[in-house]
Nucleic acid binder design. Structure first.
Length: 827
RNA sequence: GCGCCUGUGGCGGAAUCGGUAGACGCUGCAGACUUAAAAUCUGUUGCCCGCAAGGGCGUGCCAGUUCAAGUCUGGCCAGGCGCACCA
C-alpha cells in the first residue's frame, strides 16, 4: 500500500524524505496531527466481528462530559488500556476498545438553572470538546461505536430494561425514608451518601419520607458475593464489595411481649436478628429502634407515654450523621411491657434507643451486655444486670467479645460456639420461636431522582390499574422540552410542571393516567453501556445475540476505586438480571477489574478548580505533544497508586522522545547486529512485553530507556534494532513510532504490524558478575562465564586481594555458592 | 472499632525464588558547545570517615529465623483509603 497520505501529500518517499532530512527538531505538532488524520481516514481502529480471530474487549469507564473538559486523571486509565489494546492488536487479536459518554447528570442541569442553557445543548458541546481532546491524545478507540447515554436510541433500552425489572418484580414503588439532599433537592441512594453528606455537593443529608422507585438489588446479594470468586478483580475491590454487601449469618428469634405481670400481649412478638443466638441466656434487656412500629401500636399500654414520645421526636430531629457521630448511649424504657426470653422464660425490660437502627435486621435487638460493648455501655448507664455466658475474660470493665465455652446457659453449658449455635437454633425451631437467618447491610437501590436531566421512568399511574409500564412500541419515552429546570422543596421533579406530558392514557385500560415524573439515577445508563458497545447501532434490540456472544465478557475493565460500591456493583447486578431473563450469555460482565491511582498536583494536594491547580491536557499536548503526555502518564509511577504530577519528570520523557527521534540519524540498514546488540534487543522485548501485561508501565518505559541508552552508545545502529524499538514504543508513543516507521521507508501502518517476539536464550548474558561476600558482607565482585563451576567461582573469589586480606588469620567454615549470583565465605 | 493498602537517597520510584539495595527518570554539581542564554551532549550524585586503597552506616521502629532479610515470622509506630452503633 503506497498511501500518499503517509508521505505527507508527496508522491514518493524520496521526495518526502528530502524535506525532513534537514529537520533537526522533532516537530511533534505537525507529525501528531498528520497521523491522527491518517488513522481517522483509514479507520485504523475500527473493529468488526471476526470469528477467525480471538477477540479482546478492553474497557475504560466512559466519562461524564463535564464543562471543565478532560482532566489529566482521565488519560491515566485511558492510556493504560490503550497501551494494552495496541499491544494485543499487534499480537493479532481482534480488539474492541470503545468510548462513549455517561451524559445524564446533575451538573448539566445545575448549569441550566444558572444560565438557562438547555442540558442537551451544553452536554452536546461538552461531548464535542471531550471528543476533540481524546482524539488529540491519539487513543485507539473505535469511534464508530461512540454513543451517549442521553441519546434516545440508547435510553430506549435503559427504559426497556427498567420495564423488565418491573415485570419481574424487581422494581417496585415504596414509601420510605430516603436520604434527601436539600441543596441538590434530590433523593440519594445509600451509596451516594458519604459521611452523612451528599457525595456530589457535600451538603448534609436529611431524612425525608417519599414514594420512590426501588430496585431489589438485595435479592442478588448472595450471588454478588459468591460470584466474585474466580473473577480476576483486585483483592481490595472484592473485599470492599463483600464488606459493603455485609452478609451476616445468625438467627431470627421471637420474644413474646407481656404486661408487667407476665401476661402475653396477643399478637405482639418482638422479632430480633442476632448473629449469636447461643448467647441468649445472657440477654438482660431488649432494645427497639425509636422508629419501630410497636412504639406507636402499643402506646396505650405504656405508662410513660410522654417520655417515650419526647425521645422519639428528639431522635427524628437528628440527622443520620449526628446519630452516628455521637456514640454515647441514650434511651427510654418502655414501662408497662416486658419481653419474655424464650430460652429461660425470664421477663426482661424493653427499651427504645437510637443505637438500634431501623434499617438493619428487624429494627430490634436482644441485648447481651456481657459480650457486646455497645450493650455493655448501655447497661452500665441504665444499671441493668450483666450476665456472663462465655467463659474467660473479665467483664468488670468492659464486655468480653472473644469466644469461650458457655456458662450460665442451661442446656448450652460447656459447649463451644459452633455447637451452641446449632443447638440454640434447633431449640428455637423445635419450639417454634425462631429460625436461622442471613442478613445483609446492602439496601435496595433507590432508583428515583426528582430531576429533569435523566431517563424518564416509563411508567404511568392509573387509578384503576395502578402502576402500568409503557408498551415496548411506545419506547423511547423521550424527555419533554421544558424551560424551567428548578425542582421544588417538596421534592417534585421539574417534569411535574409539564402537564401536557404528565397527563396521558393508561396502556392497559385506556383510562386517564399520569406519568411518573421522577427520572432515573445517573447510574442507570452506565449499568449496561458495555453491552451496547457490542452492537451500538441496533434499533431492534439493545444488542444482537451474535454480537454479545462474540464480544462478551469484557476481558479487562479499568476504572476508579470510587465506583466499587456504586457503578461496579450496580452493573454486575444489572447484568445478572439480564442473564436470568435470558438476554445476555454470561453471569458476570467483567473478567478482570483493575484500578488506577489518582493524579495529585505537584504539592501532593488534590487537583481542584477551587485550588486552581488543575492541569489541562490541552496545554500538555500543545507544549510537549501527545506522545510525551502518554509516555509520562505511563511513567509517572505504579499504576494502582496515587501519583504526583511533575513538570520536571514530564520534561524527562519529552527529552527521551527527542532522543529516539535523533537516534534515527545513526541507523544503517547494511550492518549486522552483534551478539550484544541482540541481547539488548531481546531483553527489552521480553521486559516490555511482560511489564505491559502486568500494568507495570513505569518499568516498561524504563526498559525502553535502558535500551535507547544502549543504542545511543553505538557508533552505528543496525536498522533491525531501531525498527524493533519503534514497534515496542508504538503502544506508548504511536505518533512517533508511526512517523519514524514511515521514515525508515516502510509503507505500512506500524499499528497494524506484528508485535516482536523475544528470545530468552538470546537475551542471556554469557558473562556474569558474581558478588563475593565474607560472612554476608560484600567484599568485591568477580566476572565469570555464565554457569561457571563451583570450584572455578570459589577459586576466583579467593584470589581477590581484598578477600585474602579479610580472611587473614581466620579459618573458613563454609563456602556458599549460588550459581551466577553470589559466593559467601563464612569464616 | 472492623477491613484493605503503603512506608526505600534531595525527589518520583526500581529490585522474579530471600542472594551486589538505589535500575530508570528528575534535581543538584562539574565540564563541553555558545559572544551569552536556552537547548543539547559528557561526567558525577545514598550518608559518614579517608589523599587513596578501603572501611563504617543504611530500605519506618524493635525482636526473631538464616551463611545471607527491603523481601520471611512476631510485636509496635506513622500515613492513606473504604465501611462504620450492621446486633
Amino acid at each position: 500500500m503506497k498511501n500518499k497520505n503517509i508521505y505527507n501529500g508527496k508522491d514518493s518517499y524520496e521526495e518526502w524524505a528530502s524535506e525532513w532530512r534537514q529537520e533537526d527538531r522533532y516537530n511533534f505538532r505537525t507529525i501528531e496531527n498528520k497521523w491522527q488524520n491518517i488513522w481517522d481516514e483509514e479507520k485504523a481502529y475500527k473493529v468488526e466481528i471476526d470469528k477467525t480471530k480471538e477477540k479482546f474487549y478492553a474497557l475504560v469507564e466512559f466519562p461524564y462530559p463535564s464543562g471543565a473538559g478532560l482532566h489529566v486523571g482521565h488519560p491515566r486509565s485511558y492510556t493504560a488500556l490503550d497501551i494494552i489494546s495496541r499491544k494485543k492488536r499487534m499480537q493479532g487479536l481482534n480488539v474492541l476498545y470503545p468510548m462513549g459518554f455517561d451524559a445524564f447528570g446533575l451538573p448539566a442541569e445545575n448549569y441550566a438553572i444558572k444560565t438557562g442553557v438547555h442540558p442537551a445543548v451544553s452536554t452536546k458541546a461538552n461531548m464535542d470538546n471531550f471528543t476533540r481532546q481524546l482524539k488529540s491524545i491519539g487513543f485507539s478507540f473505535d469511534w464508530d461505536r461512540c454513543f451517549a447515554t442521553c441519546d434516545p436510541e440508547y435510553y430506549k433500552w435503559t427504559q426497556w430494561m427498567f420495564i423488565k425489572l418491573f415485570e419481574n418484580g424487581l422494581a417496585y414503588k415504596d414509601k420510605i425514608a430516603i436520604n434527601w439532599c436539600p441543596s441538590c433537592k434530590v433523593g440519594l441512594a445509600n451509596e451516594e451518601v458519604v459521611n452523612g453528606c451528599c457525595e456530589r455537593c457535600g451538603a448534609q443529608v436529611v431524612r425525608k419520607d417519599k414514594e420512590q422507585w426501588m430496585v431489589a438489588i438485595t435479592k442478588y446479594a448472595d450471588r454478588l458475593i459468591n460470584d466474585l470468586e474466580g473473577l480476576d478483580f483486585l483483592e481490595r475491590v472484592k473485599s470492599q464489595q463483600i464488606n459493603w454487601i455485609g452478609r451476616s449469618e445468625g438467627a431470627e428469634l421471637d420474644f413474646a411481649l407481656t404486661t408487667v405481670d407476665g401476661k402475653e400481649i396477643e399478637g405482639k412478638k418482638l422479632t430480633v436478628f442476632t448473629t449469636r443466638p447461643d448467647t441468649a441466656f445472657g440477654v438482660t434487656y431488649m432494645v427497639m429502634a425509636p422508629e419501630h412500629d410497636y412504639v406507636a401500636e402499643l402506646k396505650d399500654v405504656f405508662e410513660n407515654k410522654d417520655e417515650i414520645q419526647n425521645y422519639v421526636t428528639e431522635t427524628s430531629k437528628k440527622s443520620d450523621l449526628q446519630r452516628t457521630m455521637d456514640d454515647s448511649k441514650t434511651g427510654v424504657e418502655l414501662k408497662g411491657i416486658k419481653a419474655k426470653n424464650p430460652y429461660n422464660g425470664e421477663l426482661i425490660p424493653v427499651f427504645i434507643s437510637d443505637y438500634v437502627l431501623t434499617g438493619y435486621g428487624t429494627g430490634a435487638i436482644m441485648a447481651v451486655p456481657a459480650h457486646d460493648q455497645r450493650d455493655y455501655d448501655f447497661a452500665k448507664i441504665f444499671n441493668l444486670p450483666i450476665i456472663q455466658v462465655l467463659d474467660g475474660g473479665d467483664i468488670s470493665e468492659k464486655a468480653y467479645e472473644e469466644d469461650g465455652s458457655h456458662i450460665n446457659s442451661g442446656f448450652l453449658d460447656g459447649m463451644n460456639k459452633d455447637e451452641a449455635m446449632k443447638v440454640a437454633i434447633k431449640y428455637a425451631e423445635d419450639n417454634n420461636f425462631g429460625h436461622s437467618k442471613v442478613n445483609f447491610k446492602l439496601r435496595d437501590w433507590v432508583f428515583s431522582r426528582q430531576r429533569y436531566w435523566g431517563e424518564p421512568i416509563p411508567m404511568v399511574y392509573c387509578e384503576k390499574c395502578g402502576w402500568v409500564p409503557l408498551k415496548e412500541e411506545d419506547l423511547p419515552l423521550t424527555l419533554p422540552e421544558v424551560s424551567d429546570f428548578l425542582p421544588n422543596d417538596n421534592g417534585d421533579s421539574p417534569l411535574a410542571k409539564a402537564t401536557d406530558w404528565v397527563n396521558t392514557t393508561c396502556p392497559k385500560c385506556g383510562g386517564h393516567a399520569r406519568r411518573e415524573t421522577d427520572v432515573m439515577p445517573n447510574w442507570a445508563g452506565s449499568s449496561w453501556y458495555f453491552l451496547r458497545y457490542c452492537d451500538p447501532k441496533n434499533d431492534k434490540e439493545f444488542a444482537s445475540k451474535e454480537s454479545l456472544e462474540y464480544w462478551m465478557n469484557v476481558d479487562w475493565y479499568n476504572g476508579g476505586m470510587e465506583h466499587t460500591t456504586l457503578h461496579l456493583l450496580y452493573s454486575r447486578f444489572w447484568h445478572k438480571f439480564l442473564y436470568d431473563i435470558g438476554y445476555v450469555p454470561t453471569k458476570e460482565p467483567y473478567n478482570k477489574r483493575t484500578s488506577h491511582g489518582m493524579i495529585l498536583a505537584e504539592n501532593g494536594e488534590k487537583m481542584s478548580k477551587s485550588r486552581g491547580n488543575v492541569i489541562n491536557p490541552d496545554d500538555i499536548v500543545e507544549n510537549y505533544g501527545a506522545d510525551s503526555f502518554r509516555l509520562y502518564e505511563a511513567f509517572i509511577g505504579p499504576f494502582d497508586q496515587v501519583a504526583m504530577w511533575s513538570e520536571d519528570s514530564l520534561n524527562g520523557v519529552y527529552r527521551f522522545v527527542g532522543k529516539v527521534y535523533a537516534l534515527m540519524k545513526k541507523v544503517y540498514g547494511d550492518i549486522e547486529p552483534s551478539k550484544s546488540d541482540l541481547r539488548a534487543m531481546h531483553k527489552c522485548i521480553l521486559e516490555v512485553s511482560e511489564r505491559i501485561d502486568q500494568m507495570k508501565f513505569n518499568t516498561a518505559v524504563s526498559s525502553l530507556m535502558t535500551y535507547v541508552n544502549y543504542l545511543s552508545g553505538l557508533e552505528k545502529v543496525p536498522a533491525e534494532l531501531y525498527l524493533t524499538l519503534l514497534k515496542l514504543m508504538s503502544p506508548f508513543t504511536p505518533h512517533l513510532a508511526e512517523e519514524m516507521w514511515a521514515r525508515m521507508g516502510k509503507s505500512t501502518l506500524i499499528v497494524k504490524e506484528s508485535w516482536p517476539v523475544g528470545d530468552n536464550s538470546l537475551a542471556q548474558d554469557d558473562e556474569v558478575t558474581i558478588a563475593v561476600q565474607i560472612c554476608g558482607k560484600m567484599r568485591g565482585t568477580i566476572e565469570m562465564p555464565k554457569d561457571a563451576s563451583r570450584e572455578d567461582v570459589e577459586e576466583k573469589a579467593m584470589s581477590l586481594d581484598n578477600v585474602k586480606r579479610q580472611l587473614e588469620g581466620k579459618t573458613i567454615k563454609k563456602v556458599i555458592v549460588v550459581p551466577n549470583k553470589i559466593v559467601n565465605i563464612v569464616a
